[in-house]
């Protein structure tokens, strides 16, 4: 395999998909973030922690511009890093993925990874807007979220390995095995300790837009990486001639 070509196309595909993700967030998630931060500000005023003064709003605008500006950059960084993981798994599993075109193969893998390391963990620990979340519990919540992703991801990998040892007609056993395994983990893992005090229409709207934006990322990643792979063929055997 051509190492540099492989690394380059994987990183570029992840970066492009991440930029799409960040831009989508700006369009559909950002209004919910603004609304939630507006509630946070009102809470600060009513508790006396901050005063509703022009100076406050100047400082607020300055850091909100910084946060909004970071959406696309953070999207590119996160997209590149998740794309790197996707590229590794795609390289190892490409031959056994269904489909006769690399875009189709990449989309199958993207769908599998979306389900196992994003959507199922999301169902247990859904995304929350600002105003939801106690600073005191952020480390615990981070550990829980990351642990669930890791358990689900490695679980899926383990059952995939198992499926390769099974006869064609019995591969469903591995899928059922993963479903039972992750259901047990889902029930056994502790709940998010924080109470949701924000209006539920805001929280649910935010979560729906978050899922749409992340799903767009995974679809984009599958299409772009698959298309790059199809075009550049980094795993085309190198022909070494000696005479």
């Amino acid at each position: 395999m051509k190492t540099l070509r492989f690394i380059g196309l994987v990183l570029l595909a992840g970066c492009f998909a991440g930029i799409i993700h960040g831009t989508t967030n700006l369009a559909i998630v950002e209004p919910y973030l603004d609304e939630a931060i507006g509630i946070e500000n009102q809470n600060l005023f009513s508790s006396g922690e901050e005063k509703d003064t022009p100076e406050f709003w100047v400082e607020y605008s300055s850091y909100r511009d910084w946060q909004k500006g970071g959406q696309v950059l953070a999207g590119a960084i996160l997209g590149t890093s998740v794309g790197a993981l996707f590229g590794i798994i795609f390289a190892f599993s490409r031959r056994s993925l269904p489909g006769n075109h690399n875009v189709k193969k990449a989309l199958v893998l993207a769908g599998t990874m979306w389900l196992t390391i994003y959507f199922i963990p999301f169902l247990k620990y859904p995304a929350n807007p600002p105003t939801v979340g106690d600073t005191e519990t952020v480390v615990l919540r981070s550990i829980l979220y990351l642990s669930f992703i890791a358990i689900s991801g490695f679980g899926a990998l383990g059952f995939y390995k198992l499926s390769k040892r099974l006869d064609k007609g019995k591969k469903i056993v591995a899928i059922l095995g993963y479903a039972i395994f992750i259901s047990i983990i889902f029930v056994a893992m502790p709940q998010n300790p924080d109470e949701v005090t924000a209006p539920m229409d805001l929280v649910n709207g935010f979560r729906a837009m978050s899922v749409i934006a992340v799903s767009i990322y995974w679809i984009s990643l599958g299409i772009i990486l698959g298309a790059f792979w199809q075009k550049l063929q980094p795993d085309k055997p190198l022909q070494t001639h000696t005479s």
Binding site: M1, T3, F6, I7, V10, L11, A74, I77, L78, T80, S81, V82, A84, L85, G87, I88, A91, F92, D235, K236, P237, L238, Q239, T240, H241, T242, S243
Partner: peptide, 28 residues
């Protein structure tokens, strides 16, 4: 003439991509 086919995934590439994955995830 001896033809050697090399199509396996290079370990170096896997290591570089794994480091980028970990670093980017931590950063964001």
């Amino acid at each position: 003439a001896v033809t050697v086919s090399k199509s396996s995934v290079p370990i170096l590439a896997v290591v570089i991509l794994a480091v980028i994955f970990g670093f980017g995830l931590f950063l964001v």
